[in-house]
Computed example of a mutant assay.
Amino acid sequence: MTSLFDPVQAGSLQLANRIVMAPLTRNRSPNAIPTPLVAEYYAQRASAGLLITEATAISPQGQGYADVPGLYGTEQLDGWKRVTSAVHAAGGKIVVQMWHVGRISHVDLQPGGQAPVAPSAITAKSKTYLVKDGKGQFAETSQPRALLAEELPGIVESYRHAARNAIEAGFDGVEVHAANGYLLDQFLKRGANQRTDDFGGSIENRARLLLEVMRAVSGEIGGGRTALRISPVTPANDIHDPDPQPLFEYVVRALGPLGLAYVHVVEGATGGPRVLEDRPFDYPALKAAYRDAGGQAAWMVNNGFTKALAEQAVRHGDDLVAFGKPFISNPDLVRRLRENAPLNPADQATFYGGGAEGYTDYPALAA
Rank of each mutant, 00 (worst) to 15 (best):
D198P: 06
G191F: 12
G201C: 10
I94S: 09
G200P: 10
A169I: 09
W99R: 11
A139V: 15
A146H: 04
V131M: 14
Q194V: 11
D185N: 14
K189T: 01
A178M: 13
T123R: 15
H106R: 11
A162C: 11
H106I: 08
G92Y: 04
I122C: 06
P111E: 05
I167M: 15
K132P: 05
A139Y: 07
N165A: 07
D197Q: 06
L188M: 14
L148P: 02
T141L: 01
S105L: 13
I122Y: 05
S85Y: 04
L184T: 09
T84W: 06
L183K: 07
K125G: 08
V117M: 07
G112F: 02
A89L: 12
A124E: 03
E151G: 08
D133S: 13
K125L: 12
A192T: 11
E204R: 09
A169W: 03
L209H: 05
F187G: 10
A169F: 04
G200Q: 04
I167N: 06
I94H: 10
G136Y: 09
L188A: 13
V101G: 15
P144G: 09
V174M: 11
V174F: 00
L209D: 06
I155N: 03
S158W: 06
M98Y: 10
V101W: 03
I122K: 12
A162R: 14
A115Y: 01
L188F: 13
G191Q: 11
Q97E: 14
L210D: 05
K127A: 13
D172N: 11
V95N: 01
R103T: 05
V156Q: 07
Q97W: 10
H161V: 15
I155Q: 02
R103G: 15
R145N: 00
G102Q: 01
E150I: 01
Q110P: 06
A121Y: 01
D197E: 09
V101R: 08
Y182V: 08
H161A: 14
Q110K: 11
V131E: 10
Q143I: 09
Q110V: 07
A146P: 07
G92C: 03
A121V: 03
A169E: 08
G92L: 00
F171Q: 06
P116G: 09
V87E: 06
T141N: 07
R164D: 12
T128L: 04
F171L: 06
K135Q: 15
N180S: 02
S120M: 02
S202E: 09
L188S: 07
